[in-house]
């Protein structure tokens, strides 16, 4: 069973429809799940505060090797800290979250994702496929090995190449919204479901 962690922000109905499982904020249910999805929109610090009561449960699950998928802010929360607000993230990965500079923010719309290494999430998805993004910050991993895919954002004559997916062992994060990315997004969610 997949637990989709509900932090009371946004509508997760289509994530649930694509993945099955349950939408929950109950630590017991999260503990019982065999996979965890952490979707997220909003402010890094504010969401981390809401996540606080579930933090240990989620970290335990990750350490036990259960597949974990962080979506958008849910991916950023895997890192140590963010320029967006004070406070620590889940600190699963070393590195921080930084703001786009010199380009128009938010980065919003359909952009291409290019896998940087083998990653089971992207199985059957062509390199350069489009996914839907809405964000102003992106992750900056200390260990570049965790970068699973990159995306190139160009605006106002400037270009920023940023990690659009991370992956290590059982831990996955995507900056885009698979639940808004039509067929490619559904394929990616299906790949996660089948892990």
């Amino acid at each position: 069973m997949i637990a989709i962690v509900d932090l009371g922000i946004g509508n997760l109905a289509n994530v649930r429809k694509a993945l099955g499982g349950i939408i929950t904020s109950d630590s017991y249910e999260i503990e019982r799940a065999d996979k965890i999805v952490l979707p997220g929109v909003g402010n890094f610090g504010a969401v981390m505060k809401r996540l606080e009561p579930l933090k240990e449960t989620i970290l335990d699950a990750i350490n036990e090797g259960k597949p974990f998928l962080g979506i958008c802010l849910g991916m950023q929360l895997l890192f140590e800290w963010s320029e967006e607000s004070e406070g620590k993230g889940l600190e699963v990965f070393k590195g921080n979250v930084v703001k786009f500079r010199g380009v128009r923010v938010p980065h919003i719309g359909w952009n291409q994702v290019f896998p940087a290494k083998e990653c089971p999430l992207f199985e059957g998805i062509k390199s350069g496929s489009y996914f839907y993004f809405v964000h102003s910050y992106y992750v900056n991993p200390q260990d570049k090995e965790v970068i699973a895919a990159i995306t190139d954002y160009e605006s106002k004559g400037k270009e920023v190449v940023f990690p659009s997916a991370v992956y290590k062992d059982n831990i996955f994060g995507v900056q885009f919204h698979p639940e808004k990315s039509s067929k490619n997004g559904l394929k990616l969610l299906e790949n996660f479901r089948r892990l």
């Binding site: 509508n11 109905a13 289509n14 694509a18 639940e179 808004k180 990315s181 559904l186």
Partner: peptide, 11 residues
Amino acid sequence: VKRIAEEIYVP
């Protein structure tokens, strides 16, 4: 809106 959000996978 709720029904659309549940059924549609584009923004």
